[in-house]
Nucleic acid binder design. Structure first.
Lengths: 235, 235
DNA sequence: TTATCACAGTTGTCTAGTTGTAGATTTATT
DNA sequence: AATAAATCTACAACTAGACAACTGTGATAA
């Protein structure tokens, strides 16, 4: 015995899957859907509530119900490139810069980047989006001595790859990646538009140039819901 | 020798036939009827269940029990016009718009309307009523290129014939009609106020202008109980 | 240009009422 | 005693309406 709200939920799911309502778009209002399906608004709400728990949509009071993009498959391999990864998943990448500063390296940064004591690093913090949907929070440290112009370049282009090239590093490679699971702090949850305490995947990684010299020490917090990391074959 | 619920059913039938509860009106709630007849609610339910199988009333969970009007005779011929048909049956036609959108035509629509690949169509979905009683669910596709203003016109007038005229098609004719029988999905049943799994008559049709150019590809689901389709003589 | 405000539209929440369903129990009929 | 009819109880599912909380937009004023 199927209930009305379930069949409405099924209809909406199939319409979303057929691209009828593309990712990021707004569903018709609850009132319109109620009219269309010939039911009370509460019944539509129950169907939408189901889609919400399935992670297909999210709703904002006063604004509407919006279609969520499906989780991005994010390959971790020898070459990890944000834009390429998101594009390969069929979504549109973008970034937002939250902070950019230069300061003394802390212990972890010195160790990872093989820097002498009291060396300076440029630190960039930002958000990564796929189709307007925040998928990760990142904080990267670069050796300041080697890349004196990096802050300007990052500010202009926002792409690590391009900024590196402008600083003479034509290519770079992932030399280590450590993954752990964490719960989102309130600040992180807010930035990633998750509920506080949502699960995050934390990646701590080092990239190095062709000579093996470390050029970036990065920490990234991926939304566990929206990203599925996978290890690429090293072909 | 007669049971309690049967006599209650008889009483209700005669009251409906005497116009005590006119078509479309709501019966008193089961609780009130139980009170009135001095019986348990379930006994009233059994009587109402009988009226329902007789096609005299229909009930909507949470809303109440409503009196049904009689079925409509619907002629299918060279000129099929909803309003004319229902008026000819002595009832009052009306329509409700459920959805109106423009999108890429799918295969069936492209083929029926003789459109090139990736052509756009306007799609209208709605309900047809005779005397406030839903008799059919329809979904029509129109070539968007030829009728750029159609959505506005349909929204204003809700009459295909009038919208066509406003777009320069003074008259149109049925060029093909295919009929099949289907069972109502839960959503369809709900919209037509039928029980799920009720039989529907599905008509897939194409209308064309005087030059023979297809102008509408329509699918209509008629309630098998409330409509009897008949083929008109082509005089 | 910027800030503020008003307003309509949308989702969130609550209360109350109605029909649908399931099961157990009592009462009437044969 | 057996069986059918009716009762009783309790929820589940849906409707109906009202109001609160919030968003987005456009108008107005500084």
């Amino acid at each position: 015995m199927t209930t009305v709200w379930k069949s409405i939920a099924d209809t909406l799911v199939s319409e979303i899957e057929q691209g009828h309502y593309p990712a990021g778009s707004r569903l018709p209002t609850e009132a319109m859907l109620a009219e269309r399906f010939g039911v009370n608004r509460h019944t539509v709400r129950r169907a939408i509530g189901h889609l919400r728990t399935e992670g297909l949509v999210y709703s904002r009071r006063g604004a509407g119900v919006f279609v969520l993009p499906q989780p991005v498959a994010y390959p971790l391999g020898r070459r990890v490139r944000f834009e390429r990864n998101v594009l390969a998943a069929g979504q549109t990448p973008s970034r937002r810069l939250l902070m950019l500063e230069s300061r003394r390296a802390n212990d972890a940064e010195r160790s990872a980047l093989q820097l002498p004591t009291s060396a300076m690093v440029h630190v960039m913090e930002g958000l990564s989006f796929a189709d307007e949907q925040p998928i990760a929070l990142f904080r990267s440290a670069f050796p300041a001595k080697r890349f004196p112009e990096l802050p300007k370049q990052l500010r202009e282009r926002l792409s690590v790859t391009q900024a590196m090239q402008a600083s003479g590093v034509s290519d770079y490679f992932r030399v280590s990646t450590k993954l752990t699971a964490h719960l989102a702090t309130p600040v992180q949850a807010n930035l990633l538009r998750l509920s506080a305490g949502a699960p995050l995947l934390r990646s701590v990684s080092v990239n190095a140039d062709q000579a093996g010299q470390p050029v970036e020490y990065g920490r990234t917090w991926f939304s566990g819901e929206r990203v599925s990391l996978f290890i690429e074959d090293e072909g």
